[in-house]
């Protein structure tokens, strides 16, 4: 299992890392963070220009069980799972990607 987890984390890109971080940060600030917010932040950082890409990134993280998507008041809010937290911690410890501020959370 550990081997599979490491492989999964190794395949994550910088946008996955940022999404995980922003989701965790929003949760720590007791804010709801949804797919639209992810798309806006990635667009703001010029990482992607299309919502399809943002959705694809989120779906891959959801499939890996690193985040969960919860329908609340007609909004698909995102929450980090325990696996996602471990994945974020591992990525951070590898010092490959650096964090960037979310325009929604800090702008």
């Amino acid at each position: 299992m550990k081997e599979l987890f490491d492989k999964q984390v190794a395949l994550l890109k910088d946008y996955h890392f940022l999404i995980l971080y922003w989701i965790a940060k929003a949760e720590s600030l007791h804010l709801r963070y949804n797919i639209t917010n992810v798309y806006d932040d990635l667009k703001h950082l010029k990482i992607t220009r299309t919502k399809q890409n943002a959705v694809a990134y989120i779906e891959s993280l959801t499939t890996l069980c690193f985040i969960s998507m919860v329908e609340e008041h007609n909004r698909k809010n995102l929450y980090i799972t325990n696996y996602g937290a471990k994945a974020l911690e591992l990525l951070y410890s590898q010092n490959i990607y650096s964090i960037k501020p979310s325009n929604f959370l800090e702008g």
Binding site: Y21, A24, K25, E27, S28, I80, T81, N82, G84, A85, K86, L88, E89, Y92, S93, N95, S98, I99
Partner: peptide
Amino acid sequence: ESHTEGDEVLNVLKRIGKL
């Protein structure tokens, strides 16, 4: 010193109790 921003990641994760 080289991980000041990284600490924030850890702090966030600790705050939400997912670690």
